[in-house]
Simulated assay, not measured.
Amino acid sequence: MPTLNPQPKPHFRREKSLAAKGLWPIAGIDEAGRGPLAGPVAAAAVVLDPRNLPKGLNDSKLLPPYVREQLFEEIMRRAIAVAVAFSSAAEIDRINIRQATLCAMRRALAALSVSPTYVLVDGNDLPESLLCAGETIIGGDGSSLSIAAASIVAKVTRDRTMRRLCQHHPQYGFSQHFGYATKAHRAAIELHGPSPFHRMSFSPFVIRY
């Protein structure tokens, strides 16, 4: 019976190659929450310590919630610098989700306690007016340790934010679906209408409200 090749894990080779060229510090950047109907989009920027890399990092979407939480604490303990920034639902409605995501990325980068020389950004959309040079990596959260770390920090931070919102608006169940368009979430919207944290530029709001 043929053996299936294991899924490749994120590595630090790209960062080491860039550092060998004098490009250091290097920050990984990723976002969480582009698709939901409610809540902010979050972006994280992480500068890992090459001498103290957390073990087990991977694309946050592939990790169980309890593992993400554990790795979040490891990243916060070991990384040289970590920053998270948000773009609110109101800002998303005003400038669109793409621009809001790029804004959050720029804010996260600017909030780092060290100034990166180079950034690695997940996806294919490099924010304009960054403070330094950088590149995009499609699927970067599954290939770059720095981006994987950023994906975990962004996801965990946004999930915690949605749980706090759920305390004030429990009727929507944000702590279960985190704002995504589940059947239960859509039913809650049908019953209660939108909250102040829903994205009115997203369907079904843009059509009905």
Rank of each mutant, 00 (worst) to 15 (best):
Met1Ala: 14
Leu4Val: 11
Leu4Gln: 14
Pro6Lys: 12
Gln7Cys: 00
Pro8Gly: 06
Pro8Cys: 05
His11Glu: 14
Phe12Arg: 06
Arg14Ile: 11
Leu18Ile: 09
Ala20Trp: 03
Ile26Glu: 06
Ala27Tyr: 07
Gly28Asp: 05
Ile29Ala: 04
Ala32Ile: 05
Ala32Ser: 15
Gly33Asn: 09
Pro36Trp: 05
Pro36Gly: 09
Val41Ala: 05
Ala44Tyr: 06
Val46Phe: 02
Leu48Asn: 04
Pro50Lys: 09
Arg51Thr: 03
Asn52Ile: 00
Leu53Pro: 00
Pro54Ser: 02
Gly56Cys: 02
Asp59Ile: 07
Asp59Lys: 01
Lys61Glu: 08
Leu62His: 08
Tyr66Leu: 12
Val67Thr: 14
Val67Trp: 00
Val67Leu: 15
Glu69Asp: 14
Glu73Asn: 13
Met76Asp: 01
Arg77Cys: 07
Arg78Leu: 08
Ala81Gln: 07
Val82His: 01
Ala83Asp: 04
Ala83His: 05
Val84Met: 10
Ala90Ile: 06
Glu91Gln: 14
Glu91Arg: 15
Glu91Met: 13
Ile92Leu: 09
Asn96Leu: 11
Ile97Trp: 07
Arg98Glu: 06
Ala100Asp: 06
Arg106Asp: 12
Ala108Gln: 12
Ala110Leu: 13
Leu112His: 06
Pro116Phe: 04
Pro116Ala: 11
Gly123Val: 03
Asn124Ala: 15
Leu126Asp: 13
Pro127Ser: 12
Leu130Ser: 12
Cys132Ala: 11
Cys132Lys: 07
Glu135Ile: 10
Thr136Gly: 15
Ile138Met: 13
Ile138Asp: 03
Gly140Thr: 11
Ser143Asp: 02
Ser143Val: 13
Ser144Gln: 13
Ser146Tyr: 03
Ser146Leu: 01
Ala148Gly: 11
Ala148Lys: 03
Ala148Pro: 11
Ser151Asn: 05
Ser151Pro: 11
Ile152Trp: 00
Val153Cys: 08
Ala154Cys: 05
Thr157Leu: 11
Arg158Phe: 11
Met162Gly: 02
Arg164Asp: 11
Arg164Ser: 08
Gln167Pro: 00
Pro170Lys: 02
Pro170Glu: 03
Gln171Ile: 00
Tyr172Arg: 03
Gly173Met: 04
Gly173His: 08
Phe174Ser: 01
Ser175Pro: 00
Gln176Glu: 13
Thr182Leu: 10
Arg186Gly: 00
Ala188Phe: 03
Ile189Trp: 03
Pro194Cys: 13
Pro194Phe: 13
Pro194Ala: 12
Ser195Arg: 01
Pro196Asn: 04
Pro196Ser: 06
His198Arg: 09
Ser201Asn: 04
Ser201Arg: 08
Ser203Trp: 10
Pro204Asp: 09
Pro204Val: 07
Pro204Ser: 09
